[in-house]
C-alpha cells in the first residue's frame, strides 16, 4: 500500500478534527474533534513506522504514548466540561465566554 493513502487519510482526519474544534458549539463535540486530530497523528506515526520498518518502532511507541495522552486529555477535558456545566449550566461554548 502506498504511503500516500494513510497520509491523505490522516490529513483529512486532522482537518475534520480541527474543523470540529473550531466550529462546534457543544463542548463535548469539540473534545471529539481533538480526539480526531490526535488519531490522525497516530495514523501517521504508524504508517511511517511501517514504511520505515523501524526496528525500534519509535513511531509505534509514540503512538502508544499518544493514545494515553489523549485519554488523559479527554479525561481532564470532560472533568472541566463537567465543572463548567455545574458552574454555568450549559456546554454551549458561546455562552461560556470568560468574564472580562
Amino acid at each position: 500500500m502506498p504511503l500516500l493513502y494513510p497520509l491523505v487519510l490522516s490529513a483529512a482526519l486532522f482537518g475534520i478534527g480541527l474543523y470540529g474544534v473550531l466550529a462546534r458549539r457543544n463542548a463535548v463535540l469539540m473534545l471529539l474533534g481533538v480526539e480526531l486530530m490526535l488519531n490522525a497523528v497516530n495514523l501517521n506515526l504508524v504508517a511511517f513506522d511501517a514504511w520505515f520498518a523501524d526496528t525500534i518502532h519509535t513511531g509505534q511507541v509514540l503512538t502508544l504514548f499518544t493514545i494515553t495522552l489523549a485519554a488523559a486529555e479527554i479525561g481532564l477535558g470532560l472533568a472541566i466540561v463537567l465543572a463548567l456545566f455545574r458552574a454555568v449550566r450549559t456546554v454551549d461554548v458561546d455562552e461560556v465566554g470568560a468574564e472580562r
Binding site: 478534527g17 514504511w51 477535558g77
Partner: peptide, 16 residues
C-alpha cells in the same frame, strides 16, 4: 490540546 495536536502532527511528519 489543539496546540499539542498540531505539534504531534509535526512530530509525526518529522518522524516521516
Amino acid at each position: 490540546v489543539v496546540s499539542t495536536a498540531i505539534t504531534l502532527m509535526g512530530v509525526s511528519l518529522l518522524y516521516g
